[in-house]
């Protein structure tokens, strides 16, 4: 079993050591539900700063709901309920006086399906976050757009057509545009909800490379269906099953020496 698991681990581990990184998120007793349907049954988890944390697990295990609780997107669904605590740099994001709008400017999100705003040009898409919230200094728009597109490794492909509609790009480019859009707001954390599931392998590889670079400055939490992706592109992996966190550990360790039988069954493809 362990042999097969080895194959998905990169030969030279790209992982950064975990010990020296302070916690970005400290989640404890997180319970989330839709109406009567409880999808997370008390999650305790620490997410380290400036690392890539991958969340894997079968469909319906609550991994998307989990990251949507980190920036309070979960509560936008009518009937959604949350309890427990999520500390961001020690501050409870569910605190009474926390404004979810301000939280989301610090905790950006990229979705499964690329969703550039169809009414906006490439440039306007990148600065959309600033413009939406009224914080855009017009004279700096070009500068901000360029720096975000550079960070998202999209600048060279679009620099000659910044006024073209964002929806006219390819799927992979659209997804990098969405990443640039999230970066332009200057968040601390980027949540990615299966960011590559609609993309071809080449676009996927570009995004994974990009994440490895972005980890220098940002804390990244990525939900993925693709175990190879988790193994390739993350420092830390969490395995979720039916609304519970089964195992959390350094990616190389989780994929080679899983501590829990259920994790081993899942990563070796015996179920899920």
């Amino acid at each position: 079993m362990a042999q097969r698991a080895l194959m998905v681990v990169p030969s030279e581990p790209a992982q950064k050591p975990l010990s020296d990184s302070p916690a970005k998120f400290e989640v404890s007793g997180l319970v989330a539900s839709f109406g009567d349907n409880e999808v997370l049954h008390g999650i305790d988890m620490v997410i380290p700063k400036c690392r890539i944390t991958a969340i894997i697990g079968p469909s319906g295990c609550g991994k998307s709901t989990f990251i949507r609780c980190l920036n309070r997107m979960h509560e936008l669904t009518p009937s959604a309920r949350v309890s427990g605590s999520v500390l961001l740099d020690g501050e409870d994001v569910y605190g009474r006086r926390v404004d979810p709008v301000l939280l989301r400017r610090r905790v950006g999100m990229v979705f499964q399906k690329p969703n550039p705003f169809p009414t906006m040009s490439i440039r306007d898409n990148v600065v959309a976050g600033l413009r939406l919230t009224g914080g855009l200094d017009r004279s700096r728009a070009d500068e901000i757009a360029e720096s975000a597109l550079q960070q998202a490794a999209l600048w060279d492909e679009v620099k000659d057509r910044l006024d073209a509609p964002g929806a006219g790009l390819s799927g992979g480019q659209q997804q990098r545009l969405c990443i640039a859009r999230a970066l332009a707001v200057e968040p601390d954390v980027i949540l990615l909800d299966e960011p590559c599931s609609a993309l071809d392998p080449i676009s996927t590889a570009r995004i994974e490379d990009l994440l490895t670079v972005l980890r220098e400055r940002y804390t990244i939490v990525m939900v993925t269906h693709n175990m190879q992706q988790a193994a390739r592109a993350s420092d830390l992996t969490a395995f979720f099953l039916t609304g519970e966190l089964v195992e959390l550990g350094p990616t190389a360790k989780l994929f080679t020496r899983p501590q829990d039988k259920r994790t081993e069954d899942y990563i070796t493809g015996r179920f899920g």
Binding site: V101, R104, F117, L132, T133, A182
Partner: peptide, 19 residues
């Protein structure tokens, strides 16, 4: 997805409707 995209950027309900 477009509304969520706006919220995720820190837009308020009104800002997402308007823009």
């Amino acid at each position: 997805g477009l509304r969520e995209g706006a919220y995720a950027l820190g837009a308020t309900h009104w800002q997402s409707i308007r823009r």
